[in-house]
Design a protein around this nucleic acid. Structure first.
Lengths: 333, 333
DNA sequence: ATTCATTTTGCAACCGGTTGCAATATTCTT
DNA sequence: AAGAATATTGCAACCGGTTGCAAAATGAAT
């Protein structure tokens, strides 16, 4: 079916090695042979079999892109950036949908069978142990959107969720709120734990501020809406830091159903700044997570680790900032 | 690094073929050798190299999943279903992000280099010629969300966009609207063309109904909002069929900004029924496209075509239906 | 126990490439 | 023009598997 090296060699009247070399960066071929080979290749429509060559070179240029977040709209942006970024660097994303799977063993086996050069775990809800299992299997791995650690065992790229929690706290206090709350995602998600911790930590410094904490069952609209609806049955806080934008939008929906107004009756600040947060009918004040940088850096890091497998694990955190929109009242002056 | 067949063979004290056979479905191995091999494999942590075996078997179980829709939230659902569906059938999605690329040549070359077994083009905006180029390159291909043709040149799985246009028209007329309009996506998208055609066709039967047509620049919130804002500068129609849900949501935003009410002042019906359409703060009346069926069927079809490359191209269309929510007034009775 | 049919097994060639090495060709010195 | 240095080329082995074929082993039948 497909044209092979051998056929090109025969047509060009050269050895197979010569053909291989013309298609290998930096190999030694004379201009004359190269021309002959390229002509033959063009006529035959030849392009080298990446998989066959991977057998000897040990590189497939395949990167496992593993995620379990197929329901949060921000992950469409994440996949867009990852696939584009990988493609630009000549790498191919082999997408793995973890759905409800939490045991890495299966994915590891599969990704090794396909000899991926590296793995990117893109998830804010998987525990560190998940990515670590890949590393233990000898695969270069980067955990994007993972948890910050001072002595990381795998590469982590993301944001400082604790600092974000603090930032949210300061934002609410600065706006004069004195009864605030955290409406977090699932308690098992490390991102939720850290955001909560930072939030409480910062508010510990304000003795006149009252804080409470609750959790939604998932990072989802429905969960956010249900939890806010529940909260509204008792007198609610003045302002909420929601664990994530999609949760915020759910909360906003519940608030509006209850006939309350944002930001006058209740203030909301989210986290992520997904595209939808900018939509004028949502207009969510939120903490922006620099997706582009996180993803670009993740890719660079996985490449660096492929080139130097002994590389020491590192954590790369990118700064976030508050994006002012309409769900939090302005800072009084 | 990785354990090879040879090492397992040595440890088990059998030939390499024996090992290969124990891992090949339906090959002839005695229970005794199989046991020995499996033991050795387990001890060594061996799992066969899928790429190496693809060299001789001619199958990689890799499927190219090609799309250019990385901004429409419904495509997150699409990727979720595709990746899960493929995984369940033992196939691996190699994701290709076309972004602005419209020339298939590059993608074709890449996918052939990786010897994908088949290709799924998941896009409602790419022209039929795009998928056809894959077929011409000898790759089994299915165009999901593609255009219906009576004599297809490639497999197409999707919905009957013309029928959907008609369905939307009937829905508006049934609700007593007499001044209606189509707010389409980009005019070059075949889905837009067909939906428009069906819409106009059906309304041709009602001499007392006034119709108009405009187009948004893209299937996006911003484009829908901008176009509706423009429309509102003149007296608008009573009800709009928007080319897609995300467009509808943009339109709703413009309508609400203008101080008009839905469905009292203006009615909206969308198309897709993406998750977000159900969100209570959107509550969009829309035409549901059966994603699960379309995607399941696409996968089955690409598999069937891999097994029988001579298979005659076919079109599979799935019925859509109107989902009643809050953006269209009820049918008067 | 012998013969014959049926499994099981290993050999060796092959899939489509790459690469170390030695042979050959080319270019540069003097 | 001869010799040395450098560049190019082809051979052959290898990457990690699969598979047709013939030999060896097993089992059934007589």
């Amino acid at each position: 079916m497909a044209v092979t090296l051998k056929e090109v060699a025969e047509r060009a009247g050269v050895s197979r090695s010569a053909v291989s070399r013309t298609f290998t960066e930096g190999a030694s071929v004379s201009a004359r042979t190269r021309a002959k080979v390229e002509k033959a290749a063009r006529e035959l429509g030849y392009s080298p079999n990446a998989l066959a060559s991977s057998l000897t070179t040990g590189r497939t240029k395949l990167i496992g892109l593993v995620s379990n977040n197929f329901h949060n709209p921000i992950f469409l942006e994440v996949f867009d950036l990852f696939t584009r970024g990988l493609q630009e660097r000549g790498l191919r994303p082999l997408l793995v949908n973890l759905s409800d799977e939490v045991d890495p063993a299966q994915s590891i086996r599969m990704l090794r069978q396909y000899s991926v050069d590296g793995v990117i775990v893109a998830s804010s809800t998987l525990p560190p142990s998940f990515a670590e299992a890949f590393r233990d299997a000898g695969l270069p791995v980067v955990h994007s959107f993972g948890r910050y650690t001072t002595s990381p065992y795998v590469h982590v790229v993301g944001i400082d969720n604790i600092a974000c929690g603090r930032m949210a706290a300061e934002a609410l206090v600065a706006r004069g709120h004195r009864r605030v709350a955290f409406l977090g995602g699932p308690p098992r998600a490390t991102s939720t734990q850290d955001r909560e911790r930072g939030f409480l930590e910062a508010l510990g410094g304000y003795s006149d501020v009252e804080v409470s904490v609750t959790h939604a069952a998932a990072y989802s609209f429905d969960a956010g809406r249900a939890e806010m609806a529940r909260l509204l049955r008792a007198p609610p806080a003045e302002a909420y830091f929601c664990g994530d934008d999609v949760l915020s939008i759910g909360a906003l929906s519940a608030i509006s159903d209850a006939g309350l107004r944002v930001p006058d009756d209740i203030g909301i600040i989210g986290l992520n700044d997904m595209t939808m947060a900018r939509w004028q009918n949502i207009d969510l004040t939120t903490i922006r997570q620099p997706l582009g940088e996180i993803i670009g850096s993740s890719i660079d890091l996985v490449i660096a680790t492929i080139e130097d497998p002994g590389r020491h694990p590192e954590t790369r955190l990118f700064p976030c900032r508050v994006i002012e929109r309409g769900t939090l009242r302005p800072i009084p002056r």
